[in-house]
């Protein structure tokens, strides 16, 4: 016990987040990789190597590149604890990050402060737990009832959930844009023009997030240097 106490005294909170985060994420990586292998053992089959190769070549390079860019884009916004959790549980841009942003906004802490890190960790952890529970409950109900038919081809639910992203980013965006309108004008105009002008860009919003973030940082830097951000 004494040992444990002395470790936690030496380690700052952030250091302990990195330490335990690394252990958790590497363990979960191993478990996730082991799962398909376990299925192979149980069913005594090997993957179809030709199909596996074709599937990996078509999928992995693009998502590896996206993954690398996402890690660098989202870490500053999610904070340390939130980052470890988000990259395990997923749905970052459409759920975890908006949730953390809203929590930061409501609590009034800066994202880069330790308090901000704590708040975003709490909100992302709660969001992950609630998501996991709802999805698990839904799966349980689907396996015993007709919930899946109720959820799909529903004349009310279908159009409502098809517009989740606009409904989410309308409310979330208006707060941040009105508070930071000086740095928001240029990226909003650029993104509107790009998405309206280029057909099919809607499928690439994940790639446009870092592009837009870098563009906003550059324009914000110019405005900051010129002393235009009061």
């Amino acid at each position: 016990m004494e040992d444990k106490n002395s470790i936690s005294k030496v380690m700052t909170y952030r250091d302990s987040v990195y330490f335990y985060g690394n252990i958790w994420n590497l363990t979960i990586t191993a478990i996730l990789l082991f799962a398909p292998i376990l299925c192979c053992i149980i069913y005594q089959v090997w993957p179809d190597w030709a199909l596996l190769g074709a599937g990996l070549v078509a999928t992995a390079p693009m998502y590896f590149a996206v993954g690398v860019v996402e890690v660098f884009t989202y870490i500053p916004m999610l904070g340390a604890g939130g980052t470890y959790l988000s990259f395990v549980t997923g749905n970052i841009s459409n759920l975890k990050l908006p949730c953390a942003l809203n929590a930061l906004e409501q609590s009034g802490y800066e994202a880069s402060s330790e308090e901000g890190d704590v708040v975003s960790t709490i909100s992302i952890a709660v969001s992950s737990i609630v998501t996991t529970l709802i999805v698990a409950l839904g799966v349980l109900l689907m396996s015993v009832t007709d919930l899946s038919t109720l959820l799909t081809n529903n004349p009310v639910l279908e159009p409502a959930f098809a517009q989740l992203i606009p409904a989410l980013f309308g409310g979330l965006g208006v707060v941040f844009v009105s508070k930071n309108w000086k740095i928001a004008i240029a990226p909003i105009i650029l993104m509107l023009v790009l998405f309206i002008a280029i057909p099919g860009l809607g499928g690439s919003v994940g790639i446009m997030v870092p592009v837009s973030a870098i563009f906003t940082i550059i324009t914000a830097r110019i405005l900051y240097k010129k002393g235009l951000l009061g």
């Binding site: 884009t73 500053p76 916004m77 841009s93 990050l97 942003l101 994202a111 992203i165 606009p166 980013f169 309308g170 979330l172 965006g173 941040f176 844009v177 930071n180 740095i183 928001a184 990226p187 909003i188 650029l190 993104m191 509107l192 790009l194 998405f195 309206i196 860009l201 809607g202 919003v205 446009m208 997030v209 870092p210 592009v211 837009s212 973030a213 870098i214 563009f215 906003t216 940082i217 324009t219 914000a220």
Partner: peptide, 14 residues
């Protein structure tokens, strides 16, 4: 600016 960048991308997506 990063937050605004993300929001702008999704506003464009809309």
């Amino acid at each position: 600016a990063m937050f605004i960048g993300m929001i702008s991308a999704f506003w464009g997506f809309v």
